[in-house]
Each structure stands twice: as structure tokens, then as C-alpha cells.
């Protein structure tokens, strides 16, 4: 604030109707906007560049003209990708995996969070801490033992889990359930006790208390958890890279990276189009449900 006011006093008084406090404030504002614009350029540059490149033809890209401008805009990349079977397969795999994982996550974490928040049982406090610790275990620590476990499982039962897209349905919940349970515990714990006591006195079962009272009241938390589960499963990269290899079993992130990058021939127009379309679902959800998204983001550290 000090340097800002110094600059302000050097300048001739532009608007005499403001007091000095206000003039400081106006300059602080201008500086804030100036730096915000700079940061916004830094933060939005890659997605904008994705869009620019996706509108170019291969000829224009290899001609090495101004990379920041499109001279002959075309939608060919989009047409080609949206009619290519492999890209649609990746997209479909990603969509199925994400939707099913979100459902599994909610079915596991909501009842568990309710039990942990309201119905104390032996070891429930330890379990709540354990859930939180599980959230802190990164997937990079687990993918190798899981890979070996699935191989052993295959030897025992003959059921092949590796290189099947549905193995992701088993793996992704380990990433989504702990966090969703944790923030749902926080949301459920903030509901007044009188509410469920009244329901129990009226003869409601625990299940009815959960579905008729807790879920409707904690709906914002539920939406935040759903968004979190969806974005995590949509973006997950390590598990599909390690566990799936055949082209028809891949999900989007891995599919784009392994199939569109063929050897040294980088078809950057298509890669950027694929990446942009792949980033679209989370971005669309974010655009419409930003407040829930941010609530979920901050809940991990501020609730509980």
C-alpha cells in the first residue's frame, strides 16, 4: 500500500471530488487489475493456445507462421476426431468409467459418512482418521503392488483384470471414496442433532433418516462430492496408463497421448483438438457449478 500511495501523491489530482483515502484506493484497485490481467494471461495461455492450434490445418502449423494467430480457420480437426472410431471409443470409455465410478463412490461413501458422523460404533473414530489418511496415500505408491496383485488374482481365478477398461471401476474408487467420505462427514456433522432425534422419535429407521433428512439437507455437499469424484475419475492418468494397453480399452487421457502421438509424427492440430474436447466435460461442469466445485475444493481442509 505504501508504494501505491507514493505514486498517487506524485500525480496531479485528477478527480478533486475524491478524498486522499479514496485516491489510494483507486490506485490500489488499478494495480490489482493490472496484475490480475497479467496472471490471467499466464493462467489462460495454454488453453487458449490449444484452441488456436485446434483451428489450424497441418499445413499452416508446419509453415511456422505466427503461432498465435489463425490465418485459415478450419473445423476439420474437430470433424475428423468426432468421426474417428478410436477417439469416440476413448470418449465413451471415459464417460462410462466416470459415471459408474461416481455412482459407486456415492453408494459407498454416503452411508459410511453417515455412520461415522452420527452413529458411533466401536472404532468409528479411528476409522474416520483412517479414511483421512487413506486420502493422503498417493496412487503412485500403490500402482505397482496392485499390478502384481491383479496378476496373482489372474493366476488363481483365471479372471484377467489387466488390460480391461472395467478394472478402472475397481481402482478409481480408492481415489475418490476417501475424500468424498471425509467431506460428507463434515457436512453431516454440521446438521443439528435435533433433526435426526426428532425423526427417530417419530419412528423413522436409520436408513429413512439418512435418505429423507440427511441427504436432502446436505445436498450441496453431495453435489460437491459428486463433482470431485467425476473430475478425479475423468482426469486420472497413471492407473489407465499402467493397467490398460489395447486401443479399445483406453480412456481419453491415455488414448490421446498414446494413439495421436505416433512415433515422431506429431499431428498437433488433432492432439490439441483431442485434448480440448477431453478437457471440455470438467470445464462445462465447472462453468455451471462453480460454487459447488469451489466448496468441495476448500472443504477438504476447512471442514472436519
Amino acid at each position: 500500500m505504501a508504494n501505491v500511495s507514493a505514486i498517487a501523491t506524485d500525480l496531479p489530482v485528477a478527480r478533486p471530488k475524491y478524498g486522499s483515502m479514496n485516491r489510494d484506493r483507486i490506485w490500489a484497485l488499478r494495480w490489482s487489475y493490472f496484475f490480475l490481467v497479467l496472471f490471467a494471461i499466464f493462467f489462460l495461455l495454454p488453453p487458449i493456445y490449444m484452441l488456436i492450434t485446434s483451428l489450424k490445418t497441418s499445413a499452416e502449423i508446419s509453415a511456422a507462421t505466427n503461432p498465435w494467430w489463425v490465418f485459415n480457420p478450419t473445423l476439420d480437426n474437430y470433424k475428423e476426431l468426432l468421426t474417428s472410431n478410436s477417439y469416440l471409443t476413448y470418449f465413451r470409455n471415459s464417460a462410462i468409467v466416470s459415471v459408474v465410478v461416481v455412482s459407486i463412490t456415492m453408494l459407498i461413501s454416503v452411508p459410511a459418512a453417515f455412520a461415522l458422523a452420527r452413529m458411533k460404533f466401536w472404532g468409528s473414530a479411528t476409522l474416520a482418521t483412517g479414511v483421512f489418511l487413506t486420502y493422503l496415500i498417493p496412487e503412485t505408491l500403490l500402482f505397482i503392488p496392485l499390478f502384481k496383485m491383479f496378476a496373482i488374482f489372474n493366476e488363481w481365478t483365471g479372471i484377467a483384470l489387466i488390460n480391461r477398461w472395467w478394472v478402472l471401476l475397481i481402482l478409481y474408487p480408492t481415489l475418490t471414496v476417501p475424500f468424498c467420505t471425509w467431506i460428507m462427514i463434515g457436512y453431516f456433522a454440521s446438521i443439528p442433532k435435533e433433526l435426526d432425534e426428532a425423526a427417530l422419535i417419530d419412528g423413522a429407521t436409520w436408513m429413512q433418516t439418512l435418505t429423507k433428512i440427511f441427504i436432502p439437507v446436505a445436498l450441496p455437499g453431495l453435489i460437491a462430492a459428486t463433482i470431485f469424484a467425476f473430475t478425479v475419475s475423468w482426469a486420472q492418468f497413471l492407473y489407465p496408463l499402467a493397467f490398460t494397453t489395447s486401443a479399445d480399452q483406453l480412456v481419453l487421457p491415455v488414448g490421446i497421448i498414446t494413439s495421436l502421438i505416433k512415433g515422431d509424427v506429431f499431428n498437433w492440430g488433432q492432439i490439441m483438438t483431442g485434448a480440448l474436447l477431453g478437457a471440455a466435460p470438467p470445464l462445462i461442469i465447472y462453468a455451471f457449478l462453480m460454487d459447488y466445485y469451489i466448496a468441495g475444493l476448500t472443504a477438504g481442509a476447512t471442514k472436519g
Binding site: L36, P46, Y49, M50, I257, M272
Partner: peptide
């Protein structure tokens, strides 16, 4: 606007950086 980098799946935005 400023939260967009966090929302884009990292594998996708890294492709943009790779191209940059």
C-alpha cells in the same frame, strides 16, 4: 477465470505445454 488451470485434467494441459 484464474481457477481454470486446476480444472483442466493435467494430462491434457500438459499436452498444451508440450506443444508450447
Amino acid at each position: 477465470m484464474l481457477l481454470v488451470p486446476w480444472v483442466i485434467p493435467p494430462a491434457m494441459s500438459c499436452l498444451a505445454w508440450l506443444w508450447l
